[in-house]
Design a protein around this nucleic acid. Structure first.
Length: 302
DNA sequence: AAGACGTGGAC
DNA sequence: TGTCCAAGTCT
């Protein structure tokens, strides 16, 4: 391993006991992902962050590659109809993200000269960018120092620091303060720290089957020390799926996505049996801008 | 501030 | 087989 040890110059103290082993672990175990390559553009990072919202890395990989190949810069996407973004989004899920990414590309082109902004506030103003994504793009594309709180980081912190199997339903003030206090003082190390903790949560401290034997901070983990107590909070209702509007919308949109011309309404009849729900969901897709009417009897991607 | 919003793989 | 889960955002 050549190059400087990123943990070497950090101040000593309680935090350093965490930083050092996690940074060292990341150095040897980080996945090679396209948006992490040294030459990766901020646009590549931005596209990956949209696609990775609620979607596993393995399914994002091929779509991300095709996307960057076709639209190497934000302005390239901005010049296309939104329907092209929806079609290229494929089956990643939550297709409104494709619409938002397109709208963000337009905003970047018009307001930022075609360059993905580096500031958290400018990023947060983009459609589809919330606190996590703004912090992630500023951090991973530009090396800025921000608290990056995604589901992986929250789970690792809940376990290692609080001894809880699962973090709270939504980000708490205490959680954010704790993460801020832990953030290394210099920006480059803070950026590496954030991606390292995320990676640890994704590969080792997973939701279903944590591999404590492979964990660099198992020795200081409060959850492990307590004997891995199970989650004891309020019951969380699993998302229903069968027969829901979301399933219906997915079916309808799949028909439009797979067609290369406007689709007759009768084709949608075949995609979902309940006429009332079908009509409601189509109306929703039209309202959301995921579909457009092309005639009295046909619809298409926008 | 819960609930809506897609999809498919893993156990 | 059914449940759980995946780098959240928006309203």
């Amino acid at each position: 391993m050549d190059g400087p040890d990123p943990a070497r110059d950090l101040p000593a103290g309680p935090a350093a006991d965490l930083w050092e082993p996690v940074l060292r672990w990341y150095d040897g175990h980080a996945r090679d992902l396209p948006w992490r390559e040294p030459g990766a553009s901020a646009w590549s990072v931005m596209v990956s962050e949209y696609m990775l919202q609620q979607t596993p890395v393995a399914r994002v990989l091929p779509v991300h590659a095709a996307w960057l190949e076709r639209w190497p810069r934000p302005a390239d996407l901005a010049a296309e109809p939104t329907g092209e973004a929806v079609r290229a989004w494929g089956r990643l899920g939550y297709p409104r993200r494709a619409l938002r990414l397109h709208a963000a590309a337009v905003a970047v082109t018009e307001r930022h000269g075609g360059e993905v902004p580096a500031s958290y506030d400018d990023l947060l103003a983009l459609p589809g960018v919330g606190d996590y994504t703004a912090a992630a793009i500023a951090t991973f594309a530009y090396g800025r120092r921000h608290v990056v709180l995604d589901t992986n980081v929250r789970r690792v912190h809940a376990r290692v620091l609080a001894g809880q199997a699962v973090p709270a339903a939504s980000v708490t003030r205490a959680e954010r303060d704790r993460a801020a206090a832990l953030l290394p003082p210099d920006a480059p190390t803070a950026a590496t720290w954030s991606v390292a903790v995320m990676e640890l949560g994704a590969l080792v401290c997973t939701a279903r089957s944590p591999d404590c034997d492979a964990c660099p901070v198992a020795g200081t983990c409060a959850w492990r020390a307590a004997g891995h107590p199970a989650y004891d909070g309020p019951v969380r209702r699993a998302q229903a799926w069968d027969g829901t509007d979301r399933q219906c919308r997915g079916r309808l949109l799949a028909v439009l996505r797979d067609a290369d011309a406007p689709v007759h309404l009768s084709r949608l009849d075949a995609a979902w049996p309940d006429p009332l729900q079908r009509a409601r969901c189509l109306e929703g897709l039209l309202t959301d801008g995921l579909a457009v009417r092309t005639s009295d009897t046909t619809v298409a991607l926008p």
